[in-house]
Computed example of a mutant assay.
Amino acid sequence: MLNLKNIIHKYQDKFAVNDVSLEVKSGEILAIVGESGSGKTTLLNIISGNIMPENGVLSIDNEVIDIYFNRLIKELPNIKLVPQDYRLKPDYTIYENIDLALTKYTHQYRRERVTELMVLCGISEIKNKKPREVSGGEKQRTAIARAIAEEPLVLLLDEPFSNLDSINRTHLRSKIVEIIRQEEIACILVTHDLLDAFLVADRIAIMQKGKVLMIDTPLNILQEFENQYIKDFVSSAVQPIKDFMEGFGKNMNFDV
């Protein structure tokens, strides 16, 4: 379990993250959503070790992780971040990109683990291709496979759907749920798209101006009417679907 308590970070005199506390269980997906500048990406970078906060405690399975010292290697132990740009090695194959995360292990274990991950992430058929030869969704799944190769306890995904077409988004959403459940990782997923969060997350945290306004299940988020900001935020995601269904839905057959 990942646990954050009273995380605070400022840029000059402005709160980027304002007294945030949350927890994520193994095998659970928590989506953090909010407008640009709400603090969600800053919070993700604090958890990953890329930004040092002014205050707060981070622990994994009740073990406090030191987030207050400068490191040559930014990553914190047992926490892996998949950035928006994937950071795959362009001249290496998909197989080799995943294998690079396992260089300290035996050749036999590396072969077995990479093969297992490629099957889990649905990328076995492209193992000999270079990143430039595969789709955005396949790049994203390769980056996830590489990140979980050493079986981290926490996986952080920064806008994993932002550069994908609708088919790849749908495939990746289902794959993320499958991966997190099978590997039993605590996952935090940052997205600006509330609809993606509804479709993939067990719980959703809505941020505004550095503060977490609400953490709850997708259903309870949909039924929140007291907080006007949350109500408007949810409406902005759901209204286009309502408009489409009212305009075209009655005359369309969605059977596939």
Rank of each mutant, 00 (worst) to 15 (best):
D99Q: 07
P240Y: 12
R181V: 10
E96M: 11
V234C: 09
I221G: 06
D13S: 08
G27N: 11
I60H: 00
L2C: 03
I180A: 04
I123K: 04
L199G: 01
T106H: 10
Y105W: 12
I204W: 05
K130E: 05
T41S: 15
I67R: 09
F69I: 12
R141L: 06
S59Y: 02
I126P: 03
D216Y: 11
R146G: 05
N6Q: 07
K130G: 04
M214H: 10
E75G: 13
Q228E: 10
R110W: 03
E96A: 12
L100P: 06
V256M: 12
L88Q: 04
F225A: 15
E183R: 07
N70Q: 01
D196G: 02
K130M: 10
I206Y: 00
R132S: 14
L213N: 12
P160A: 08
I98M: 03
G137M: 10
D216P: 10
Q228K: 15
I73S: 09
K104L: 10
D193H: 11
E226Y: 14
V154M: 02
K211E: 00
H107A: 02
E224W: 13
E28V: 11
E178T: 07
D216V: 13
Y92D: 07
M118L: 15
T103N: 13
Y105A: 11
D243S: 14
I241V: 14
K175Q: 05
E116H: 05
H171W: 01
M252C: 10
D232W: 14
A31I: 08
M207L: 14
F248D: 08
K5L: 00
R113K: 13
N251K: 14
E184D: 05
V200I: 10
Q239D: 11
F15H: 06
S21Q: 09
T115V: 07
Y92A: 13
G249A: 12
I215V: 15
E125M: 08
E133N: 09
L72T: 14
D165Y: 07
L4H: 00
I73L: 08
P90A: 01
D99G: 03
K129T: 04
Q239T: 14
T115E: 09
G49E: 08
A31H: 07
E96Y: 09
I94G: 02
I47Y: 01
V64R: 13
N6E: 04
N128C: 05
M252Q: 13
D243T: 15
F244Y: 15
S235F: 11
S48R: 12
E54M: 02
S26N: 15
L43C: 06
I46L: 03
D196H: 07
T191E: 05
D196S: 09
I206D: 04
K104G: 02
R71A: 10
V114F: 06
G49F: 09
K211N: 01
N70D: 03
L81V: 06
G136S: 12
D91R: 12
V200T: 03
R173D: 03
I148K: 04
V190D: 00
D99W: 05
N62G: 14
L81G: 05
Y11I: 13
K175F: 08
